[in-house]
Design a protein around this nucleic acid. Sequence first.
DNA 1: CGGTCGTTTGAAGTGGTTCAAGCCTTGTGG
DNA 2: CCACAAGGCTTGAACCACTTCAAACGACCG
Lengths: 249, 249
Amino acid sequence: MLALNSLMTRPMARAISGLVRAGELEAWSAERLLAIDVAVERYPPGAVIAAPNPGVLGLDILSLDAAAPGGRCAPNMKWLLDGWICEARALSDGQRQIFSFGVPGDVVELPSTPHSRVVVALTAITCVDAAELLARSADPDEMLEAMSRSTGLAVARRYEQLARLGRRSALVRLASQLVELHDRLAAVGMVRGEEFALPLRHEELADALGLSPVHVTRCLKTLRQRGLMVMKFRRVSGFKRAEMEQLCF
Amino acid sequence: MLALNSLMTRPMARAISGLVRAGELEAWSAERLLAIDVAVERYPPGAVIAAPNPGVLGLDILSLDAAAPGGRCAPNMKWLLDGWICEARALSDGQRQIFSFGVPGDVVELPSTPHSRVVVALTAITCVDAAELLARSADPDEMLEAMSRSTGLAVARRYEQLARLGRRSALVRLASQLVELHDRLAAVGMVRGEEFALPLRHEELADALGLSPVHVTRCLKTLRQRGLMVMKFRRVSGFKRAEMEQLCF
DNA sequence: CGGTCGTTTGAAGTGGTTCAAGCCTTGTGG
DNA sequence: CCACAAGGCTTGAACCACTTCAAACGACCG
């Protein structure tokens, strides 16, 4: 991997190492990935990432290849190289529900039906189109499998999120969300010791956790007072993962 | 379809008509379905429906066929012919979160990792194994597509559920859940006018909606007083769908 | 007919929201 | 380099939605 690092841009290296660490790609295939010449897309914060192809009705995930007769394809998926995104829905009363966050290395399925769900860049991001990547890949099957493993993990996280919202107190919701993000960031090498970047405002956490921003502030204060973490200037420091997890039961 | 009805058992007919109405199977293929001789499984209320095959890590949905090299298979999926099931998780503090309900005609993916999620029969149920059905089907591709469409709808409902739990009041949560169930039951011909069977206790609704059973009682009372519906003796009557939906915004 | 399970209702408590003000950080222009 | 504005964070006080506890009632089942 040493030789690789000198060849790669940092975000690309991070994303690849993300897939590798999650066991989603064999280590040696990272080299092959680099050989692929694919256009890197850039979006500014706040940009809505829309699907290029009109999707098949209600099939977001499953269209992965079931929809392509006999074929391997990944319609409307992006591989996030750098930056944060979220999947969200704006509700009729002006509120917003954030369904999930996406961090570097994640594979994101863009919604086919436009207004059920929106993918928004929370920071400046760079990503590549999954279908393009597959088309140019020497071993598309392997890469497709890596990608579906990534989206499979996203599915599991969605169940986690349901349990959080339905049956957890505000403090536990926040703590478990932070543990999840910590672990995902750690998997792609974006945690150093007890510290990591977290470019989310209280409002985004609130919209994900079904709370008011004010109460997120208060819960963060509680965590701070208990010495479990400090969130300041878009960074988390002093993150005590073990105690944090214990708090969640 | 008339000729068919005389040949079929009622649950089978209902389930098939469910897939047909949802546009998941061409009408003419219902006949072919009946030709398949597949074992019907029965479970009593409370039974846990476990997966026969150890699953691939974290791949529940996506293993649909991505995991089968070059193949069409549907591991650990059941096609529910009759009765109600739910997907749930028991939390460490004794509480329960119900992720979703399954009604006749639904295709249910059983969890591969046992304790993340459990599928439980809420009533006596009958179902068939999807893989077996496929194996014996003359046109497995078409049937697989129908099934993935069904699970695709389940994915969409999961987003709906997230928004419900995160950003809706108790009354709206309940109303929107009831509208959803009404529509799903209507699609399989299980609604007659403003009436349908709903074999759920307040406790099950509470566990799905993240509320206390007592508060479900109160919300049902409110709906009753507003003349939107009556839920009694495991049946809903006087269900005013339009007003109900309007209440949800 | 009595026991059990589920529903209903009331009263009291609590966790989270809302509103409003002050503060701190960051960015901008003189 | 400072003044100022804007956006986000923080804190307090009042309020409300939902929970918890407890008791009574009703339906179903042996």
